[in-house]
Simulated scan of single mutants.
Amino acid sequence: MTTPTARLSAAGVSIWLDDLSRQRITTGNLQALIESRDVVGVTTNPTIFQGAISAGIGYEEAIAAQAAAGASADDTIFALTTTDVRDACDIFRPIYDATRGVDGRVSIEVSPELAHDTAATVAQAKELHAAVDRPNVLIKIPATKAGLPAITEAIAAGISVNVTLIFSLERYNDVIDAYLAGLEQARAAGIDLSGIHSVASFFVSRVDTEVDKRLTDIGSDAALALKSKAAIANARLAYELFEKKFAEQRAQDLVALGANVQRPLWASTGVKDPALPDTLYVTELVASGTVNTMPEKTLQATFDHAEVTGDTITGAYADAHRVFDELAAIGIDLVDVTQVLEDEGVEKFIASWHDLQGTVAAALEGAKARA
């Protein structure tokens, strides 16, 4: 009898864990999740690393070495995070090889402080790529306006990219165009397109959090009936856009030359509202060629009791459009919603980054005092 995670994988959804720490690597936990939970990749972000490193477990020796070398907090963060990602890449290398680069991926993000600086984002993307030095690393670049040309430039240099913090269909359209432009430039430079991969991380649960707050404020029966529907509709329409864009001649010409499609990735899939089913953003977003990156709590819930019944996206486009029409009719401005979420997303990652800098600085001082 197959497990729900196995059925999800069979339906064409790649399961990536949204968490990484030195402890997961050294205890064999990450390998165990690969073997028992069908995990085929890992994503990280500043908040995840802040939680891992602030816990301290497994980092003491490395921090002591950095302190002895006189390293700054930022240099130490760079060393610790790239080491974790490199080691995770090695664990996932057999999956990377078996899937010809599609899965077995580990993501590391450029500093969120660079989200509005194109040139600095590109420079750090190249620096991270070189430091990890593994073919299965993905460099995360946010889908801000400044991030779009950075995505193109990174792809053009042959760097595989995880585009993060996508909330709106309009921005997703721009992200696909940025990816295709990067592939065109890579081809002109003579780079083998088959080695370049990308995912587009469409954030899910945060959309419901923001929209539901506004629906509650409106308070009518019609408004309340739309609660917890916006995020899934948004993601389903993103997949519809993905199908449309990659069926167009521009994309098909590149695919014919060996290029890979940029897969949609569902991020922020842990439910924020405890009244909702804990696997909602997994079971309602099943379609071939997608990635679902899950916090461990969501992963375990999915393994335990998710009802995976096959594709729940491609037959639901009409209903998703209807939800969008009803939200607009009731006064929900989705352009404003998604801009608020993008701004908040960048701000939250910057706050986590600052917390991480403070944690590491204090750890370095502590190590110096003990030396």
Rank of each mutant, 00 (worst) to 15 (best):
V360R: 04
I57Y: 02
S160V: 09
G147S: 09
I48K: 04
V42I: 13
D212T: 10
A287P: 00
R236Q: 13
A267C: 05
T144H: 14
R214A: 12
T314A: 07
D355V: 08
A301M: 07
N162W: 03
G41S: 11
V132N: 06
F246K: 06
V271M: 10
Q262A: 13
N29I: 00
A64S: 08
E184V: 02
D38L: 09
A150N: 13
A223F: 12
A351Y: 12
D278E: 15
A73P: 04
D325Q: 15
A186L: 08
A371E: 08
A65I: 03
L20P: 08
P149W: 12
G147F: 11
Q124D: 15
Y281H: 05
D177R: 09
V255D: 01
E210P: 03
G28Q: 02
T82E: 08
F246I: 01
Q124K: 05
G258A: 05
D84M: 15
G315Q: 07
F246P: 13
S9F: 03
Q357G: 02
T43R: 03
A79L: 13
L327S: 02
V132P: 10
D18G: 01
Q357A: 10
A115G: 09
A259C: 11
E296F: 01
T216M: 07
A247W: 10
H129Q: 13
I191W: 00
E153H: 07
A67V: 11
A371G: 02
W266H: 07
T269Q: 09
D273C: 00
E326D: 15
P112N: 04
L224K: 14
D311N: 10
E184S: 05
A32P: 00
A123T: 10
A123V: 11
V13A: 06
S9P: 01
Y172H: 14
S9Q: 14
R100N: 13
I95R: 02
T121K: 08
D319H: 11
M1L: 11
V346E: 04
F324R: 14
A275Y: 02
Q124T: 11
T47Q: 03
V360P: 11
I95N: 02
L276Y: 06
D174I: 02
F203I: 01
T290H: 04
L180G: 01
F324W: 07
G182P: 01
K244D: 14
I196W: 07
I63F: 06
L20E: 06
E109A: 07
